[in-house]
């Protein structure tokens, strides 16, 4: 049984991010891997140590401040679970929260959880549009596609990015990096949502969860025709421009 936790689904649910949970859950179900999804809202009890996969989405500014206060109370337990191999996917606002701080336009410093070594500051313009990113999991390079929409610009410290931007802005529109990757934690600006049409990443996360449970992480192959075509359609537009390639 893989234990999944959707953090603050009532507040962090912009841009169809629940699709990430749907994709994770369905791809387990189609392989007969039992999954339990728990929704955790403000004030609810949660034990991170016992979980396998935590998903944190993005919200509007107001909602983000509401949940930051709540998450701060659970910070130490969350950080310890992460060091212990908890699998985490954090998108956009949720991603920013894992870092040291967010410097807003008024110069106000809003502290983050400080679990990962990066910071974010408000940019001049909003970074909006389709994105293609090259990543490498298990030494195999492949491409992710998604849609970004953020005004915060994230700068990584001594920590690895999720991938390299092929098209779009990524973390800050300057250094060509996108997302963050530490142990089993993945942060990214990619909505879309990310997991349904980037199934290699989804399966990689499922594999990590199985491993954490001490189970065989080899996954049964699925028919990914629609997913690959959706991914490929965007890559054709952004990267290859006519040169057909699978993602």
């Amino acid at each position: 049984m893989i234990r999944v936790c959707h953090l603050y689904p009532d507040l962090l649910n912009l841009y169809g991010d629940r699709g990430n949970i749907i994709a994770f859950q369905q791809r387990c179900k189609w392989r007969d891997i039992p999954v339990h999804v728990q929704s955790v809202n403000r004030g609810d009890k949660v034990c991170f140590r016992e979980l396998d996969f935590v998903f944190l989405g993005g919200g509007s500014d107001r909602e983000q401040i509401l949940i930051a206060t709540d998450l701060m109370k659970r910070r130490d337990e969350f950080a310890a679970a992460i060091e212990g191999g908890l699998v985490v996917l954090a998108i956009c606002g949720g991603y920013q929260l894992l870092g040291a701080y967010y410097l807003n336009r008024d110069g106000e410093n809003i502290p983050g959880l400080g679990i990962l070594d990066f910071y974010t500051r408000a940019g001049e313009r909003r970074l909006v549009g389709n994105v293609a990113v090259e990543v490498s999991l298990n030494g195999v390079p492949f491409k992710l596609v998604g849609f970004e929409n953020h005004s915060g610009q994230t700068f990584l410290g001594d920590i690895r990015p999720l991938g390299r931007v092929l098209s779009g802005n990524g973390n800050n529109g300057r250094d060509g990096l996108e997302g963050v990757w530490h142990k089993n934690v993945f942060g990214s600006y990619l909505h879309g949502p990310l997991l349904p049409k980037n199934v290699r990443l989804t399966d990689y996360l499922i594999g990590l969860c199985l491993e954490r449970r001490g189970l065989n992480k080899e996954l049964m192959l699925l028919d990914d025709d629609f997913e690959n075509r959706a991914c490929e359609a965007m890559l054709l537009r952004l990267v290859h421009r006519g040169n057909k390639l699978f993602c």
Binding site: I22, K197, D223, D225, F226, E227, R229, A230, E232, A233
Partner: peptide, 23 residues
């Protein structure tokens, strides 16, 4: 449409059998 593939993915994950879905 330009994102017809995306729509097919959405239907698939909503539990519609893929043999009923075409792009």
């Amino acid at each position: 449409g330009l994102r017809g593939e995306e729509m097919a993915v959405r239907l698939k994950y909503a539990g519609v059998p893929i043999n009923k879905v075409s792009i």
